[in-house]
Design a protein around this nucleic acid. Structure first.
Lengths: 253, 253
DNA sequence: CGCACAGTTGAGACTCATCAAACCACGTGG
DNA sequence: CCACGTGGTTTGATGAGTCTCAACTGTGCG
């Protein structure tokens, strides 16, 4: 509650080219949200936003902070507004495996809506802004706004598409090939050519390789000019060289 | 239409312990369906089944037959009533990768509901019985029966859980470990200890290994008594030995 | 300074892919 | 009937790729 300034509860905000008065602070916050058009509530119109009578917490996370833990029974789902979140899970041998990454506009923890426990841990990889959406809020909105059900299904399908893509592109082929695909994917999460570079161990958990192998590959790619270090956990990607490397890689195989 | 005998359109069928008269042949067929309680329409009551005014084709497929093709724009989703269906996809290097298997009660091709093209090829691995459910039927039912939306979401989450499980269990670890997990999973699809055994090439496409490696592993497991050939594409699984092999495998790693 | 931690690099062992040969079950046609 | 091709399977030999163990570096922090 404390993160919504009370004195602006009746301000007029521009929405989709026209203006409309929204009285509820939460509705205003959602309407003004920078990622609303990509996110779940993009399916709702301004009137529907006014019906939100539950608090949507605005979370700010530092790298390593957890959004939720696997197996925990959750009462909320989350929209990632900025930053990168990893979904990871412990395999039976004790190693942690990163299933996929969630970025700007992605919805995670949907299983809470079905009264299931979370299927994986969700941990911030970079500074992250996220919204915590209570399950009861969705339950309530679903009654009046059937279009929200379709939006939810789209989110589920998106997660499934992501999972399939990770399966085909990041879990098969040689180590080098997998690393190149990972860089490509990291490039997609950023609008600029500067991307978040995971630790070698995290790369290993994504690509099923040891951190030493990941390190060797990164070093090689740096020498090849595909990658350029610009700080800790940050790098500049040279897309042309990356694509070229991928092409010659496919030709070899 | 031709697969529903018209002279029995008014027969009384027992449902869930009591009886009820259903006039529509399609409703009767669905109500009597052996997997209805596991399948999508388990969420619907008898009255709702009566509202089904589209034909649900009953498909019988032989191994190798395709349910649908990836990239094709689909107008139907499918419930697998019996048998095993594989969802596969071509990776960029031209190799085909099997993403996961669908068995009794599973819903596949849900993306058609969102007017998306199919995300993968769906091909029968064994003789398969499946229902072809037109998209327009679901669209129509969703209006009157919001509980169906929840059932659909559960299906989506199930597919996602499956994908995550394949990622953690069948796409990481040593070749032997992955093979053991695959056998475990194949055992789950069958009630008996006799299971469908994929070709070595298919195993390779599931576990990201060559067919030679798959063959060597299968031969070794046969010698270890985990597996016993009982025909082409069929084998008897010895669960105790399988679990024991998995345990000693985890201890070694 | 000393410690902890992520990263890099090397040497050797081991796993798995590759290439190759042979086997088997099957159906077809001579 | 057998000869033959076909497709799936098995097995072997060899080399490439990756893991393991280990040493060393650089950086940040108490």
């Amino acid at each position: 509650m404390s993160d919504a300034p009370g004195d602006a509860a009746r301000r007029v905000v521009p929405i989709h080219g026209h203006t409309q008065t929204l009285y509820d602070p939460q509705a205003r916050a959602c309407a003004a949200c920078g990622v609303r058009e990509f996110a779940l509530f993009g399916a709702l119109d301004e009137a529907a936003l006014g019906e939100i009578h539950y608090h949507i917490a605005d979370l700010a996370l530092e790298p390593g902070d957890s959004l939720y833990q696997g197996q925990a029974s959750g009462t909320a789902l989350f929209t990632v507004r900025s930053g990168v979140v990893r979904l990871e899970r412990l395999s039976d041998n004790g190693q942690s495996r990163i299933l996929r990454l969630a970025g700007r506009g992605d919805l995670i923890g949907q299983e809470a809506l079905l009264h299931q426990s979370y299927a994986a841990d969700a941990v911030a990889c970079t500074p992250v802004q996220a919204c915590r959406i209570p399950r009861v809020l969705i339950d309530e909105l679903l009654g009046d706004h059937p279009e929200l059900a379709r939006a939810l299904m789209k989110r589920w399908q998106r997660a499934l598409d992501d999972a399939d893509e990770w399966m085909t592109e990041l879990s098969s082929g040689s180590a080098r090939h997998r690393m190149l695909r990972l860089l490509l994917k990291l490039g997609e999460t950023s609008d600029t050519e500067t991307v978040w570079l995971p630790t070698r161990q995290q790369m290993g958990a994504m690509l099923d390789m040891t951190l030493e192998t990941a390190s060797r590959l990164v070093s090689t790619l740096r020498r090849e000019g595909v990658l350029e270090d610009t700080g800790p956990g940050i790098a500049r990607l040279h897309m042309d060289k990356l694509l070229q490397a991928l092409k010659s890689d496919a030709a070899a195989a």
